Amino acid sequence: MVRLYTKGLHIGYGERLIVKNLNVEIPDRKITTIIGANGSGKSTLLKAITRIVPQQSGTVVLDGKDILKENTKILAQKMAILPQTPESASGLTVGELVSYGRFPYQKGLGRLTKKDIEVIDWALEVTGTSDFKYRSVDSLSGGQRQRGWIAMALAQETEIIFLDEPTTYLDMAHQLEVLELLQKLNIEQERTIVMVLHDLNQAARFADYMIALKDGQIVKAGDCEEVMTHDVLRKVFQIDAHIGRDPRTNKPMCITYNLLKGDNQNEKMAIPLSSIGAYR
């Protein structure tokens, strides 16, 4: 089932076109990961789908409606986005931060209702941040802070959650903590999760569906077996990858690779695996 898709999407900044004639479908109740080199249009695509940046042409359709014609609060009840660098929450407690997720449901003076408080407490509990409710966001570790932001997105009670590089700046343990939380939300609550990830092996490990972008266009979209291949990674990243199997999940993973360079891409230079995302 597909509730969300784009048709002929063109997105740009000024005269520079970032995403070109993009037609993409987001599978419902699945985890979709988007991969691609820097500047390939990954973040721009997320921002356009969630109406943060306008498209130059084309359409984003959710539940049969053009999102540009949808009421802002109604749209915010369907989709939540956690950007790569969330706005500063300086001075806020975790509980106050999470309460911002209730904005789409507030009326009048915007006071929290009993239902709002129940949802906030639920979001804190699900993300394991209840103990931090009255603590300053500034006092938390990177992983704890990221879980707080995810709790805010959950408090928005949307069925679709977008995350732009949710593991950036986190150590290996906290990266895994955040990704396992998102996987749990998908499995237990059937949330549709769409996230941009730089770590290819994490992207494959946690995804049901992958989208590989290059220069604002889709090189390949499908399950992990279709996208995590030697040919696709060569086209997207200009690397000569050796693909193996994750011993825990049996999903494809990049074991090692060489960088291809030169006009004919015949020259190769070894690159440490850690720079593209080692197995977690």
Rank of each mutant, 00 (worst) to 15 (best):
L109G: 02
D131C: 06
T50M: 06
K69L: 12
T158K: 07
L92M: 15
P83K: 11
P166K: 09
G148K: 01
K69H: 11
R111Q: 09
G110N: 02
R51T: 05
T167C: 11
V60F: 04
L112M: 13
T93D: 03
N71S: 10
K115Q: 14
E118F: 00
Q106R: 15
T85Q: 14
R51Y: 06
S136C: 03
M79T: 08
Q77D: 02
V53A: 00
G148N: 00
K115E: 15
N71I: 07
L163W: 01
F132L: 11
M79H: 06
G142Q: 08
T127Y: 07
Q146T: 04
L92R: 01
L97K: 06
L62W: 05
G95D: 09
R147Q: 05
K65V: 14
P83F: 11
G128A: 10
W149I: 01
E125K: 15
M152G: 02
G108A: 07
L124I: 07
R147G: 02
T72Q: 14
D66C: 09
E96K: 11
G128N: 06
I160N: 00
Y105K: 03
L140N: 04
E118I: 01
N71L: 00
Q55E: 04
Q144P: 01
Y169A: 11
T93V: 05
R102C: 03
L170I: 00
I52R: 08
S139I: 14
F103W: 10
